[in-house]
């Protein structure tokens, strides 16, 4: 986990190159559409990216500690968005909320986070813990099974029809134009999403850096056996990690519902892949990396949708992942791991 000075310089150089390339591209493309368009896309991308970042954190933490790709993570996020929708419907729906809106939104977040967190705990306990010492192919297939199970359970329980949060009817105050009526528009809902995402990430960093649990988590991810010998219960630490990561995914699910309005049982899979890409771009296992990766992936997707074509955007994101995997599997902020033989 300790990077040498040279590696860090290399990381920043890589990051700088990527940013410069993107800005150059934007400059190249902007005369046809204008700078406002570019900035608007960037704002949209940051909103999208802060959702991806929250998903990426869960992936990254779990990979960091277990070296396990939790394919089911995207579906935990989907369940989170359905829990949020359930709370919204029980409390009167977007058009006639039964309690003050601020309280309602807080309720949605709280219930969704706790619900998905518990779901994460259950998944870890029953699908992954029995396979802790199995060949590495086994938990991957088990994870695929969990993802499939969750997706279709949601289909069974909630039906295949799309649900609409109608978040803009809920939060009726609108947003602000920056730079005149034709300038960049930032909706208040977007501001809420970005700021709550940042708040959650700050809380997570604090948790990992300054609490006993954080210390234990870092110790387990560094060397599980040594940590166990020092009196840390790895099972408990791993379970808590799953809880925290899944709760973040649940929050991301509610945010997605609020901003993009429409949810259904399949939103988890692609979002999971994007979140995973974010984790890889940032450097899997690294928490600041996940945030950075989320924002980069979100902005790239938004730009690709704006300048190229809505359909190519997914391919661009997938291409970035494959490229990073082949050329720089440690991501921007990650550290290379040696394979122990």
């Amino acid at each position: 986990m300790i990077a040498t000075r040279q590696q860090r310089l290399g990381n920043f150089a890589g990051l700088g190159l990527v940013l410069v390339a993107w800005v150059l591209y934007a400059v190249y493309a902007s005369p046809t559409q204008g700078w406002t368009f570019f900035l608007q896309l960037t704002v949209n991308g940051i909103i999208l990216g802060s959702i991806y970042a929250l998903i990426a954190l869960g992936y990254s933490m779990v990979y960091g500690i277990l070296k396990l790709l939790n394919f089911a993570h995207g579906d935990v996020y989907m369940i989170g968005s359905f829990i949020g929708f359930g709370v919204l419907s029980v409390l009167g729906g977007a058009l006639s909320p039964a309690i003050p809106v601020v309280l309602l939104v807080l309720c949605m977040f709280a219930v969704a986070m706790i619900g998905s967190g518990v779901l994460g705990l259950v998944i870890e306990r029953f699908a992954y813990r029995p396979l802790r010492n199995a060949p590495r192919i086994a938990p991957l297939i088990s994870a695929l099974g969990v993802a499939f199970f969750l997706e279709n359970s949601a289909l069974l329980l909630f039906g295949a029809q799309y649900r609409n949060y109608d978040g803009y009817d809920l939060i009726s105050f609108n947003g602000i134009h920056i730079g005149g009526p034709t300038g960049v528009f930032v909706s208040y809902l977007g501001v809420i999403v970005i700021s709550s995402s940042v708040a959650l990430m700050v809380a997570l960093v604090a948790l990992v850096r300054w609490t006993r649990f954080g210390k234990a988590m870092r110790a387990v991810s560094f060397d599980r056996e040594a940590a166990a010998m020092m009196g840390i219960d790895p099972d408990r630490v791993i379970a808590t990690t799953f809880f925290v990561g899944s709760a973040l995914a649940g929050a991301a699910g509610v945010m997605f519902g609020l901003v993009y309005s429409q949810i259904y049982h399949l939103i988890g899979f692609i979002a999971g892949l994007k979140g995973f890409t974010a984790a890889v771009v940032g450097g899997i296992g690294s928490i600041p990396g996940a945030m950075l990766g989320g924002l980069l992936v979100g902005m790239t997707e938004s730009w690709a949708k704006g300048y190229l074509n809505g359909n190519v955007a997914d391919l661009v994101v997938f291409g970035i992942l494959i490229g990073f995997m082949l050329i720089r599997p440690t991501g921007l902020l990650g550290t290379p791991a040696l394979q122990k033989v």
């Binding site: 799309y162 978040g167 803009y168 609108n174 528009f185 909706s187 977007g190």
Partner: peptide
């Protein structure tokens, strides 16, 4: 063809200040 999509589109149109 998909009415829920049109609904989401309308919501996002509002979100972009283009209601």
């Amino acid at each position: 063809q998909l009415a829920p999509q049109a609904q989401a589109f309308g919501q996002q149109l509002k979100a972009a200040g283009k209601s």
